[in-house]
Amino acid sequence: MFDITAYAATFIFLLLGVIVYRGPQNFAKCWLHLRSLKSPQRATTVPGLDPSDPVVIFPLDRKGNLDEIEDAGSLQQFLANLHAEYGDIASFYFTDQLCISIKSPELFQEHRTAFTKPYILFKLLEPLFTKESIVYAEESDVRKRRELTNRCFGFQALQNFIEIFNEITEHLVEKISSLPPGEHIPLNETCLGLSLKMIMLTVSGEYFKDDKTSTEFKKTYDLVWNEIESRFAGDIPPEGSGRIKTFKEAKEILFSFFGRIINNRRCNPPSDERAVFIDVLIKSDYQSEVLLADLETYLNGGFHASGYLFAWALFFLAEHDDIQEKLYNHVIDIVGKTGPVSMEHVAKMTLQ
């Protein structure tokens, strides 16, 4: 299992560079297609759930189907239940927002050109991302910014990172292998930590290559993110509270990290073929506020999406021994039992 974990980690992060890492505007694309409505009472021909809460005077007070999502235990399980009852396309309400969830790949093809996402998806992230972030920009501006940076995460660009990806995953496998038999391994924490280190390298270069810098950054980031997660759970702090002060102080430290990264890359510019996301932003003469906002947005979106995808992939592999064995043999046939994963290996991985 340790061998396949190393291969899976490297492969998943390379794959994410082509698929998940296409930009923050695509965070929710694989799950939901949302349409903004002035009123949640507007009829839809799509089968699904009506809002479960009573009629309220102020639309912002509406919970929609949040109670059902909570009862299901997760959005993933809620959507699985929803589609089991209503079919490949189904509707539900997220507060006062009508949401259309698409399960069928064929139906999803009809909506693959969807580009921007509703503000509601990122509303609670604005204190962290700031209003200058790409997720709050007008569509014309988003397209310009995406055209500028998309190449940083393509298959070709990721060749620059294959060596360090192998190094990081092999280090993790050695660490796990040294644990006593039966030792608990926190899946989410491990996958998010691995993801953060890899995403920091692809976004900002080798500034975070050493463990000390990564650990210091992660400690500050966790303070900020824990507050954001509390707000997602409905625990909004009052203005002037101690939580607001702690959040702002931690955010200032976080953005000071970004400032040091930017100064480092400006003083030590890489060659064009080794340029990463931050170098492209610097050369484009982004305003400092926009540069900082997009750096935080891509870092946050990239490592959360990657880390949770990795965690779920390992979770489901652990639940299905037959698929795990099939995948293991597929990787061994291509890579062998030892040795690093190459981009040529990844291109041959077509298991279905």
Rank of each mutant, 00 (worst) to 15 (best):
Y7R: 15
I102H: 01
G242A: 07
A84W: 00
R62W: 00
Y119W: 09
F11L: 12
D67A: 08
V56T: 14
E227N: 10
A311M: 15
K245D: 11
F315T: 15
D141C: 06
E170V: 06
A84S: 08
D88H: 10
V55H: 10
T350I: 11
Y298D: 11
R35H: 13
F94G: 03
C152G: 07
G64S: 04
I120S: 10
I228K: 05
A293K: 00
E147R: 15
Y7V: 08
Q97W: 01
F310W: 14
G193I: 11
D285M: 07
I120D: 00
S230G: 07
G73K: 07
P180Y: 10
F153K: 09
S288Y: 13
P180W: 10
A305T: 15
F208Q: 03
P40F: 03
V280R: 01
S74N: 05
M349L: 14
I162P: 06
P24V: 09
V203S: 10
M343C: 14
A313H: 14
R151P: 00
G73W: 02
P237K: 08
M198H: 02
K117L: 08
W225T: 09
G242C: 02
I282N: 07
Y21V: 00
A114V: 12
F153A: 02
D96V: 01
A137K: 12
G182P: 09
I332V: 14
P180E: 02
A80D: 09
E325C: 14
S104R: 07
L34S: 12
Y221H: 09
E147Q: 13
A233C: 03
P54H: 09
L291N: 05
E273A: 09
L192Y: 08
A72I: 04
H320Y: 13
I12K: 08
K348M: 06
I89N: 01
V346S: 09
T116Y: 04
E229M: 09
K245S: 12
M343D: 00
D96E: 04
K131Q: 11
A318K: 14
A43N: 11
S306F: 12
E296C: 14
E289N: 12
I282P: 06
R35G: 04
E68P: 01
V331H: 14
P340W: 03
R265H: 06
A250I: 07
C152W: 00
F78V: 08
Q324D: 13
N188H: 12
L201K: 08
F122A: 04
A347L: 14
D322V: 15
S342N: 02
L327K: 10
S39A: 10
G339P: 08
V290A: 11
F108G: 01
